[in-house]
Design a protein around this nucleic acid. Structure first.
Lengths: 334, 334
DNA sequence: AGCAAAAATGTAAACGTTTACATTTTTTAT
DNA sequence: ATAAAAAATGTAAACGTTTACATTTTTGCT
């Protein structure tokens, strides 16, 4: 495979000049640039990024760590990340944490060994992110958190305004005349679920609806257990005419349970999910839900990180909060 | 960051020995090995894979190209790939083709620039894979196709037995007493859909059911157009009591259309999808479908490729055909 | 003890770039 | 025409490993 040397030989120029053509290119005359490029094409020259990375310390690789790639939400974000990163000349390398703090650390290790220039990460459930942060800081590897972030504040991050999303979802149910709301709460170890819970609460409060423990159903994140828990509640005496569910998938479970119990949706009970994942519009009735702008989240994350990478001096902390969007479909219709 | 040099200095050994500890390790005495490892830990040494890659030509990186990462099917396969690859000491780097042959080529280019050791690829729709193959062969980069493969034969690949999957799905419908079957055909530019169509056909033939053009509905891969096309057919005079759909997602569309038309599933019409994607068990009724063993597909692909990488001499062509599994749920119950 | 074979370690070049610094060439201003 | 400034190019070392080859040390055997 042809290298910079071959071009140098063929053009009679020095290695440095050739290299500059593919980099600083404004330090080299147009004439020679053209010559070099034509010879490069002729030889089908492909720069060896590893060599470049080794010498320059710039690998043009970004590491991405997610709990599960096989989760429509994360894969959509990754889609966004890849889109923007590849446009800006970076490759992405993906690792999964499988919700394990240990695997997360291992992933970071191997990404560092590969000399990634920066890391995008959505943390696993029980992450103690402080050591991670420390390690990366000491390695001078910038990182940007997305979606699931530590609750503290001084780190680059792009998140959805989960609070607001929950708030408008809840308010929507109230506006649709629901009197007895229920919120199915996600795993509170994950920050976003806490924020969604808060949004639900505040929406009730602002609308003068009393808040009781009964209005919340927390899950154990075990499908069988959870579905029977939900079923039990829904067939109990507790009056319920509107449910805000922390995620689309669980929302579909709720929908199925309601169908089993012959409770009509949206006639008797109205439903709003969260995520606007693909399957939210494949159900019957179609789910009302909160759109999270996954692609945008990914592109912003890429942009912020690459911004840091390209800047000589460390940029001030950036925190991008994306606006949620209420998608009204059939499951909450009047 | 500590390097091999620092360890050499601290232990008084040569670079070569240190390097060997982390590689050939059987060429070095246990005593020194232990010493080196302890010093390495002390200094928190992380090998620089780029440097190693440059010198040895082994990057420990595998490139993965899929049409869309944001597709539950592909992300599940990638999951499998990552699982096995990381276990075997390889990292994966992902690129998307977005069903464009041009982007696919660009992806291959940038993977080559990154010195990936091998490539796993599921081709985009209109790929002319011959130039790809030629280029990789000339670069001596082994590749393994998965799922969507060229129809020709002499390349490593791991695929599902789509033909058989379609066959058993169809036969299942026949056994459930369906007399008037319909097959909703996927984009025939993709090899798997052709194979599924063949399976359907042959199942009819074997069971003495006459085959007519009416029994096939081809789609344009445009959601709106397609749904109305399906709707039109289903409310026409054509008697239909069983539908085999090329994929779960489309199957859910069919289910929704049937619900709209007040045609009961599975009472009046039975339905079988393909893929066993997550949302096939989130619908009501739950979808009968064909399981594709995505994870296995990914792990096998990794294994075959890494096998090639580790072998000194090129291995004979390997072709792994995974068995489909019929998952019977509510949509095809009697 | 002495010798050959085997095991362990060392030497130094190489991988394909980038880049600080040096040098040459061209442009500009007088 | 000439000096100074600017632009273009060149030189050579460096990035952190691996590895062919050379050397030293250890082991086993008589």
């Amino acid at each position: 495979m042809a290298g910079i040397k071959d071009i140098a030989k063929k053009t009679g120029l020095s290695l440095a000049t050739i290299s500059r053509v593919f980099n600083d290119s404004n330090l080299v005359s147009n004439k020679t640039k053209a010559k070099v490029l034509s010879v490069a094409k002729e030889l089908d020259y492909q720069p060896n990024l590893m060599a470049a990375a080794l010498r320059s310390g710039k690998s043009k690789i970004i590491g991405v760590i997610v709990p599960e790639i096989n989760n429509p939400f994360f894969s959509a974000i990754i889609n966004g990340i890849e889109l923007r990163a590849s446009k800006l000349g970076y490759n992405i390398i993906i690792a999964q944490s499988h919700e394990s703090s240990q695997k997360e650390n291992r992933a970071i290790q191997s990404l560092l060994k590969l000399n990634v220039e920066g890391i995008l990460i959505s943390v696993s459930k029980q992450t103690d992110y402080l050591p991670i942060l420390a390690k990366l800081k000491s390695n001078k590897v910038p990182m940007v958190f997305f979606d699931r972030t530590p609750l503290e504040n001084d780190i680059d991050q792009v998140i959805l305004d989960d609070y607001k999303g929950a708030y408008i979802a809840t308010e929507h149910l109230i506006n649709q005349n629901c009197k007895n709301l229920l919120h199915i709460v996600g795993d509170l170890e994950v920050s976003i679920h806490q924020r969604r819970k808060d949004g639900f609460k505040d929406a009730l409060a602002k609308n003068g609806i009393p808040i009781s423990k009964q209005r919340f159903l927390s899950l154990e994140m075990d499908v069988n257990q959870d579905t029977s828990k939900i079923r039990l509640l829904l067939q109990s005496k507790l009056p319920v005419d509107g449910v805000f569910v922390h995620g689309d998938e669980t929302c579909l479970y709720v929908l199925n349970i309601l169908k089993d119990l012959k409770i009509k949706v949206p006639k008797k009970v109205k439903l709003v999910g969260f995520g606007n994942t693909k399957f939210s519009m494949l159900s019957h009735p179609k789910l009302s839900t909160i759109d999270q702008g996954c692609i945008e989240m990914g592109t912003y994350a890429s942009e912020i990180l690459i911004g840091q990478l390209k800047s000589k001096t460390p940029l001030p902390t950036q925190k991008k909060i994306l606006p949620p969007k209420l998608i009204i479909r059939e499951s909450s219709a009047t």
